[in-house]
Write a protein that binds this DNA or RNA. Structure first.
Lengths: 225, 225
DNA sequence: ACCGAACTGTCAGCTAGCCGACATTTCTGT
DNA sequence: ACAGAAATGTCGGCTAGCTGACAGTTCGGT
């Protein structure tokens, strides 16, 4: 992989903004790079050394298999997100893997040990990283609260709002999402059954709040959501 | 506050173990210290500067008030735990406060800015702290998973096991917990109603798994849980 | 020793949402 | 172009657990 490319991959991630131009150039911690197509499964926990991944393009879901063999969605990773053992504790969670959702993804990775060294050499980066992880924690905790105190419909609305905020193409008061999730995925994310999710989506549709298709979801009036 | 005391307060926290004897002595970042009795409410978010707190003795719960005015338990903080704006993002969560659960608590605090400086000067500490926050995130995520996939009874069992692991006096195959929680608290922690929690506790009691009283919970045979 | 407040215990009715079963539509590979 | 697979829709029965209502118990303060 060209040094030049590595540079850019790190450069435009907000985590590394605290580093100077030349510092980034010296990094060279990226060791892996791969592409994968829709539906492919990536076992990132079975590589012998712990890694941290950076999703450059597309979207994937992290799923784990419970005792009964059901897939449960742990997390949706989107363009620009870091994933893997962010906790830096190298203890691999068994039977967890990633599944590609969008048509194509690009992922690059670096070794956790390299990353740790980097944090040690750049305390400011370590601080930023901690805040980064903290933010993630906050988001998880928010979901948790929603799950407890809101019903399925509110959770769906909230999820859609979050999604729009992250990836929506907004034009005035309307917005469009490229829909790489199945209704089953959506159901799992908002922690409900597929049947309930379908029903809720259709309710929103007949209320004129959105129009749903396999390819995209359109919101004619954002303020309604 | 005596320097000597400050020293010891930090010294025996696992987070600061990476620092050398003399490094700790130089810290002096502790700026506040207070005691409080059962039932007292501590607003830690209204102090003008963001702080991080260390609970030296006792137990408290972090609660926040939702839109309808209900208290919801965010977190139980026990002896030795850090709390406050661990994410280091200084953005105060409105209407969140702490309530003392045990008979008495001792809390010391330091300024977030001091702590950040400290992390910058000691990269190794920053790394440890990051892992620390990461661990917390992992625990929250686990609860989340339990909430989704397990029923109330399993969640209660899991909670009791966790509690025993943290604070139980274990003797052979039996264990005892000092019970500073009301059944209402327990209910909220495992995300169910008080009535359901009562029922479940009584079920466990008539199964001979535990004996519950306001003061303590005793488990005659841990293996049953 | 007493009173009020907080906590604990129990019951019955109700409902959000799960689950299984099935029909229909859309996509994908050959 | 076609078959099979995957995704989407729809229905009705069922149940875990919520809610309200109330009674009994324990605790802390005066």
């Amino acid at each position: 992989m060209y040094e030049e490319l590595k540079y850019w991959y790190l450069r435009d991630h907000k985590l590394f903004r605290v580093l100077s131009f030349s510092q980034i150039k010296q990094l060279c911690i990226i060791v892996g790079f791969k592409k994968a197509a829709k539906g492919e499964i990536i076992y990132f926990s079975d590589s012998d050394v712990p890694r941290i991944f950076l999703l450059k393009r597309g979207a994937i879901k992290i799923v784990s298999v419970d005792a009964d063999g059901n897939e449960i969605i742990r997390e949706i990773i989107q363009k620009g997100d870091l994933f893997g053992e962010l906790e830096l504790d190298s203890q691999k969670s068994a039977n967890e893997y990633a599944k590609v959702l969008s048509d194509e993804v690009s992922i690059c990775s670096f070794l956790m040990s390299d990353f740790e060294d980097l944090l040690l050499r750049h305390p400011q980066l370590a601080l930023t990283y901690t805040k980064f992880v903290g933010l993630k924690m906050k988001r998880i905790r928010n979901n948790y609260t929603n799950l407890v105190s809101k019903d399925a419909k509110s959770r769906l609305r909230q999820f859609l709002l979050d999604w729009i905020e992250k990836e929506g193409k907004i034009e005035g008061d309307s917005a469009t999402l490229e829909n790489y999730l199945t209704q089953n995925d959506i159901a799992q994310i908002i922690c409900t059954s597929r049947q309930t999710a379908v029903q809720l989506l259709n309710e929103l549709e007949s209320d004129g709040i959105l129009s749903y298709s396999r390819r995209e979801i359109h919101f004619p009036k954002l303020s309604l959501l």
